[in-house]
Design a protein around this nucleic acid. Structure first.
Length: 493
RNA sequence: GUCCCCAUCGUCCAGCGGUCAGGACGCAGCCCUUUCAAGGCUGAGACUCGGGUUCGAUUCCCGAUGGGGACGCCA
């Protein structure tokens, strides 16, 4: 089995395309087949190498590895359409020599007028086939003389049904009478999509073409080319589209849609892949968190949904939270470093900094959806605002009393390095002031964190103390100790 | 306009002739709790409509309706 993902490098890699890539990849891995990455850069205007590079990086980040591609090489190289022009020229010449394609001299303006007229009078807006009547020898002379011409495929006359079996939706039939002669080589000499895909898929021996539903009506055209070429056609599978909440195809105006943006916002590749897999496919019973190996084991095109799916950002967020909790802490800590560095909370990627960040994870994981949000949740460690803390303490009727009792307890116990020490200090404070429950703990919280909500105190407090012992060389922003904070709030009064 | 595809809770999926129509996200309530979350439990919430076929249709067939796609010298 040979499948391919063939993006055109004209921008960012979109999650809808990633889903297509993923389904191709899953099928290849499931059957021990080959996954090919092919770059469809025939549109010279819009394709850029920067976009190609970015897409490759995104695919790598997602873990969708390919066996053949522009960088990896392979037996059917090159895998970049812009480097395959000689091959397209050859096939185009052959088609023309055999009367299956002809030169068209119509101007864009002419074509546009015809289309408008057809639309206005309610006829299908397709090419009239006018240039088909031009004698091939004369056409060749005109081209020789430098007249610009596109090459069109000569769709067989008469109405004939073209049927193909779609692996996700069954048989699809289209009548050739609705297909106008379409351009296969632009007047500039570059191959048009319908032509290049067929040549490439045939040359690269692709056995199954999995792509978006928007290509379903292109399939009959491509089948006609396969036929004219005397090549066997691959199997086809068309995936439904990914929509936004308004049921319009997912686009920038729905929010974040490109892989690089999801990455920048702190989504994990495993979560994105898992979410996307479940958008239009289900592994069977229950389970939403599906390890990649399990997906490979279970994936099958016949169980892919026929209908369009709405992208649910909330569910993705939930999924990401699940992965933040399940993936090894060392991995999450490492991935979170760039975000913390960006905030200036971590200044150097030392082993000590990494270890400290990892130690903070139990405090944030589960309460945060994305890596990017970790910084907010731990901000109280590094940016503690004494005035704000004092203000919040005073809002509580017994606030100052509770804080003073706690401060005295801490002076006795020393640094609250672990949960037990913290609890012992809290117990001592309760004995000193007689306050308990919220009346005791809330003042302690606001005094120590300058915020009235946050992580559980018995893990937040030791985190403060651990941070306070870190040397400057650790590359972590300064954390003031509990005692320092208490002194500043309770004062020496 | 023409052709093609699609149709189960708000959303994503299960269901593949007989089910109290199941799960997940989200939502509501309760519990837990020193706060916000998280977590646990409970709950509300769907078979688009009309014809067939059948003893029996969410499930099969036809039509309508609705949604989407295509009709480019974009892919």
């Amino acid at each position: 089995m040979r499948v391919r993902f063939a993006p055109s490098p004209t921008g960012q890699l979109h999650v809808g395309n990633v889903r297509t890539a993923l389904f191709n990849w899953l099928l290849a891995r499931r059957h021990g087949g080959t996954f090919i990455l092919r770059i469809e850069d025939t549109d010279r205007e819009r394709s850029t190498r920067a976009s190609e590079t970015a897409m490759i990086a995104d695919l790598r980040w997602l873990g969708l590895t390919w066996d053949e591609g522009p960088d990896a090489g392979g037996p059917f190289a090159p895998y970049r359409q812009s480097e395959r022009t000689a091959r397209y020229d050859e096939v185009a010449a052959d088609l023309r020599a055999r009367g299956r394609a002809y030169f068209c001299f119509c101007t864009p303006a002419q074509l546009e007028d015809e289309r408008q007229a057809a639309l206005a009078s309610g006829r299908p807006p397709r090419y009239s086939g006018r240039c088909r009547a031009i004698d091939p020898a004369e056409a060749a002379r005109r081209v020789e003389a430098g007249e610009p011409a596109a090459l069109r495929f000569a769709v067989p006359e008469g109405d004939r049904d073209v049927t193909f079996h779609d692996a996700v939706r069954g048989d699809v039939t289209v009548n050739t009478s609705i297909i106008g002669d379409f351009v296969i080589v632009r007047s500039g000499g570059s191959p048009a999509y319908n032509f290049a895909v067929v040549v490439d898929d045939a040359d690269m021996q692709v056995t199954t073409v999995i792509r978006g539903e928007d290509h379903i009506s292109n399939t009959p055209r491509q089948l006609l080319i396969y036929e004219a070429l005397g090549q066997p056609a691959p199997a086809f599978a068309h995936l439904s589209l990914v929509l936004g909440a308004d049921h319009a195809p997912l686009s920038k105006r729905h929010g974040v849609t490109s892989v690089s943006e999801f990455r920048a916002r702190g989504y994990l590749p495993e979560a994105l892949v898992n979410y996307l897999a479940l958008l239009g496919w289900s592994p069977g019973e229950g389970e939403e968190i599906v390890p990649i190996d399990e997906m490979i084991r279970r994936f099958d095109l016949s169980t892919v949904s026929h209908s369009a799916a709405v992208f649910d950002f909330d569910k993705l967020a939930w999924m990401n939270r699940q992965y933040m909790r399940r993936l090894p802490a060392s991995r999450i800590a490492a991935d979170a470093m760039p975000y913390l560095q960006q905030r200036g909370v971590v200044t150097g990627a030392t082993a000590e900094a990494l270890a400290y960040v990892e130690s903070l994870l139990p405090m944030v994981v589960g309460s945060v959806d994305r890596l990017e949000e970790i910084g907010d949740r731990v901000a109280f460690l590094f940016a503690w605002d004494a005035a704000e803390a004092r203000r919040l303490v005073e809002v509580e009727s017994d606030g100052p009393r509770a804080v003073e009792a706690f401060a005295e307890a801490v002076r006795a116990t020393g640094p609250l390095v672990d949960r037990e020490t913290f609890r012992a200090a809290a117990t001592r404070a309760r004995e000193l002031c007689g306050l308990k429950g919220r009346a005791l703990f809330h003042p302690i919280r606001v005094a120590l964190t300058a915020a009235d909500s946050g992580p559980e105190l018995d893990i937040a407090v030791p985190a403060i103390e651990r941070g306070a012992t870190l040397p400057a060389s650790a590359g972590v922003a300064r954390v003031s100790s509990c005692l320092e904070r208490l002194r500043a709030v309770a004062g020496q009064r």
